[in-house]
Measured scan of single mutants.
Amino acid sequence: LVRYRTISKIPQITLNFVDLKGDPFLASPTSDREIIAPKIKERTHNVTEKVTQVLSLGADVLPEYKLQAPRIHRWTILHYSPFKAVWDWLILLLVIYTAVFTPYSAAFLLKETEEGPPATECGYACQPLAVVDLIVDIMFIVDILINFRTTYVNANEEVVSHPGRIAVHYFKGWFLIDMVAAIPFDLLIFGSGSEELIGLLKTARLLRLVRVARKLDRYSEYGAAVLFLLMCTFALIAHWLACIWYAIGNMEQPHMDSRIGWLHNLGDQIGKPYNSSGLGGPSIKDKYVTALYFTFSSLTSVGFGNVSPNTNSEKIFSICVMLIGSLMYASIFGNVSAIIQRLYSGTARYHTQMLRVREFIRFHQIPNPLRQRLEEYFQHAWSYTNGIDMNAVLKGFPECLQADICLHLNRSLLQHCKPFRGATKGCLRALAMKFKTTHAPPGDTLVHAGDLLTALYFISRGSIEILRGDVVVAILGKNDIFGEPLNLYARPGKSNGDVRALTYCDLHKIHR
Score class of each variant (00 low, 15 high):
residue 131 V to A: 06
residue 439 H to R: 11
residue 222 Y to C: 13
residue 417 C to Q: 10
residue 190 F to V: 14
residue 258 S to G: 14
residue 432 A to W: 01
residue 67 L to C: 03
residue 365 Q to V: 03
residue 127 Q to C: 03
residue 372 Q to S: 13
residue 355 L to P: 01
residue 381 A to L: 12
residue 66 K to F: 12
residue 386 N to I: 04
residue 346 G to V: 07
residue 353 Q to A: 09
residue 420 F to Q: 01
residue 250 N to V: 14
residue 177 I to C: 14
residue 241 L to T: 04
residue 159 V to P: 04
residue 76 T to G: 01
residue 158 E to N: 10
residue 423 A to G: 06
residue 167 A to G: 04
residue 134 L to V: 07
residue 433 M to E: 01
residue 135 I to F: 07
residue 406 C to F: 05
residue 73 H to W: 04
residue 251 M to V: 01
residue 420 F to R: 03
residue 408 H to C: 03
residue 207 L to C: 13
residue 308 S to A: 13
residue 77 I to L: 05
residue 376 E to T: 14
residue 425 K to H: 09
residue 91 I to K: 01
residue 165 R to K: 14
residue 370 L to G: 02
residue 113 T to A: 05
residue 361 I to T: 03
residue 390 M to E: 03
residue 146 I to H: 01
residue 337 S to G: 14
residue 145 L to C: 08
residue 154 N to Q: 08
residue 141 I to N: 01
residue 338 A to M: 05
residue 269 Q to Y: 01
residue 131 V to S: 01
residue 245 W to Q: 01
residue 449 A to F: 11
residue 96 I to Q: 01
residue 75 W to M: 12
residue 121 E to C: 05
residue 185 F to D: 01
residue 155 A to K: 14
residue 265 N to S: 13
residue 218 R to S: 05
residue 195 E to S: 14
residue 166 I to A: 03
residue 193 G to S: 10
residue 329 Y to E: 15
residue 327 L to W: 04
residue 208 R to F: 01
residue 168 V to Y: 06
residue 105 S to Y: 07
residue 273 P to N: 03
residue 363 F to M: 15
residue 441 P to A: 12
residue 351 H to Q: 03
residue 69 A to F: 10
residue 130 A to E: 07
residue 263 L to Y: 03
residue 355 L to R: 10
residue 410 N to G: 03
residue 125 A to R: 14
residue 428 L to M: 06
residue 278 G to I: 01
residue 391 N to D: 03
residue 87 W to Y: 02
residue 431 L to P: 02
residue 304 F to Y: 14
residue 244 I to D: 01
residue 415 Q to S: 10
residue 416 H to C: 12
residue 250 N to F: 04
residue 334 G to K: 06
residue 79 H to M: 01
residue 109 L to F: 08
residue 80 Y to F: 06
residue 367 P to T: 05
residue 245 W to Y: 01
residue 91 I to V: 14
residue 216 L to M: 09
residue 161 S to C: 13
residue 112 E to H: 14
residue 350 Y to E: 01
residue 197 L to V: 08
residue 427 C to K: 01
residue 429 R to A: 05
residue 143 D to T: 01
residue 276 S to F: 03
residue 346 G to N: 13
residue 119 A to E: 08
residue 400 C to S: 04
residue 449 A to L: 07
residue 353 Q to F: 03
residue 89 W to D: 01
residue 157 E to D: 12
residue 130 A to D: 01
residue 144 I to C: 04
residue 334 G to F: 02
residue 366 I to Q: 01
residue 207 L to H: 11
residue 243 C to K: 01
residue 397 F to K: 01
residue 135 I to D: 01
residue 370 L to P: 03
residue 391 N to E: 08
residue 400 C to A: 10
residue 447 V to T: 02
residue 334 G to E: 03
residue 77 I to M: 06
residue 261 G to Q: 02
residue 405 I to K: 02
residue 266 L to A: 01
residue 414 L to K: 01
residue 195 E to P: 06
residue 299 L to C: 01
residue 272 K to R: 03
residue 361 I to R: 02
residue 231 M to A: 01
residue 182 A to I: 06
residue 273 P to C: 01
residue 97 Y to H: 01
residue 300 T to R: 03
residue 193 G to W: 11
residue 206 L to S: 05
residue 295 T to A: 15
residue 191 G to N: 07
residue 240 W to G: 01
residue 345 S to T: 15
residue 262 W to P: 01
residue 190 F to C: 13
residue 308 S to G: 01
residue 77 I to W: 01
residue 436 K to F: 07
residue 245 W to H: 01
residue 119 A to P: 07
residue 253 Q to L: 14
residue 209 L to F: 12
residue 155 A to L: 12
residue 200 L to H: 01
residue 361 I to C: 06
residue 373 R to H: 06
residue 371 R to D: 05
residue 250 N to K: 14
residue 300 T to V: 01
residue 200 L to S: 04
residue 210 V to W: 15
residue 377 Y to L: 01
residue 213 A to F: 11
residue 91 I to S: 01
residue 294 F to P: 01
residue 254 P to T: 14
residue 160 V to M: 09
residue 250 N to G: 03
residue 158 E to C: 05
residue 164 G to L: 13
residue 307 V to Y: 03
residue 78 L to W: 06
residue 172 K to V: 04
residue 252 E to C: 01
residue 421 R to F: 06
residue 224 A to R: 03
residue 237 I to K: 01
residue 80 Y to C: 11
residue 136 V to A: 12
residue 266 L to Q: 01
residue 171 F to Q: 01
residue 115 E to D: 05
residue 105 S to F: 13
residue 177 I to V: 14
residue 298 S to H: 03
residue 120 T to N: 15
residue 439 H to S: 06
residue 337 S to M: 06
residue 347 T to C: 04
residue 439 H to M: 07
residue 280 G to H: 01
residue 332 I to F: 05
residue 86 V to E: 01
residue 229 L to Q: 03
residue 166 I to G: 01
residue 105 S to I: 04
residue 369 P to A: 04
residue 286 D to T: 01
residue 343 L to Q: 01
residue 84 K to Y: 04
residue 254 P to M: 14
residue 341 Q to H: 14
residue 204 A to C: 06
residue 171 F to S: 04
residue 431 L to C: 01
residue 73 H to I: 05
residue 220 S to D: 08
residue 393 V to Y: 03
residue 209 L to K: 01
residue 261 G to K: 01
residue 170 Y to S: 01
residue 421 R to D: 07
residue 178 D to A: 01
residue 308 S to P: 01
residue 76 T to N: 01
residue 393 V to F: 02
residue 311 T to G: 01
residue 110 L to H: 07
residue 133 D to W: 01
residue 180 V to K: 01
residue 70 P to E: 14
residue 178 D to R: 01
residue 173 G to C: 05
residue 275 N to K: 04
residue 73 H to N: 05
residue 239 H to V: 01
residue 87 W to N: 01
residue 79 H to W: 01
residue 220 S to L: 05
residue 127 Q to D: 14
residue 157 E to G: 11
residue 156 N to P: 04
residue 188 L to H: 14
residue 178 D to G: 01
residue 439 H to E: 05
residue 203 T to Q: 01
residue 254 P to D: 15
residue 246 Y to W: 01
residue 146 I to P: 01
residue 397 F to T: 07
residue 179 M to Y: 03
residue 178 D to L: 01
residue 132 V to F: 12
residue 176 L to P: 08
residue 260 I to D: 03
residue 292 L to G: 01
residue 284 I to N: 04
residue 216 L to V: 14
residue 415 Q to V: 08
residue 273 P to T: 01
residue 126 C to Q: 03
residue 444 D to G: 10
residue 208 R to H: 11
residue 128 P to W: 09
residue 418 K to A: 13
residue 95 V to Y: 01
residue 371 R to Q: 11
residue 138 I to V: 07
residue 322 M to N: 03
residue 273 P to W: 01
residue 141 I to V: 07
residue 327 L to Y: 01
residue 72 I to E: 15
residue 83 F to Y: 15
residue 420 F to D: 03
residue 309 P to V: 01
residue 241 L to D: 01
residue 78 L to V: 05
residue 81 S to K: 14
residue 271 G to Q: 03
residue 332 I to C: 06
residue 371 R to N: 06
residue 237 I to N: 01
residue 251 M to P: 01
residue 71 R to G: 07
residue 233 T to D: 01
residue 299 L to F: 01
residue 98 T to G: 01
residue 176 L to D: 01
residue 292 L to F: 01
residue 323 L to Q: 01
residue 245 W to D: 01
residue 221 E to A: 05
residue 385 T to V: 03
residue 225 A to C: 11
residue 108 F to L: 01
residue 214 R to G: 08
residue 210 V to G: 11
residue 295 T to Y: 01
residue 435 F to I: 10
residue 310 N to W: 01
residue 225 A to K: 01
residue 371 R to P: 01
residue 74 R to T: 07
residue 327 L to V: 08
residue 177 I to E: 01
residue 324 I to F: 08
residue 420 F to H: 03
residue 94 L to Q: 15
residue 210 V to K: 13
residue 293 Y to H: 13
residue 329 Y to S: 08
residue 131 V to M: 05
residue 429 R to F: 01
residue 199 G to S: 13
residue 343 L to N: 04
residue 201 L to H: 01
residue 92 L to E: 03
residue 268 D to W: 10
residue 384 Y to E: 15
residue 294 F to N: 01
residue 278 G to N: 03
residue 104 Y to G: 01
residue 77 I to Q: 01
residue 322 M to F: 01
residue 187 L to F: 11
residue 68 Q to K: 15
residue 258 S to P: 05
residue 422 G to A: 13
residue 373 R to E: 03
residue 324 I to D: 02
residue 345 S to N: 10
residue 108 F to G: 05
residue 74 R to C: 06
residue 86 V to Q: 01
residue 183 I to R: 01
residue 95 V to Q: 01
residue 201 L to K: 01
residue 206 L to H: 01
residue 237 I to H: 01
residue 174 W to P: 04
residue 199 G to Q: 13
residue 287 K to R: 04
residue 170 Y to R: 01
residue 383 S to A: 11
residue 391 N to A: 15
residue 88 D to V: 01
residue 425 K to E: 15
residue 247 A to I: 09
residue 230 L to M: 12
residue 214 R to E: 06
residue 410 N to K: 03
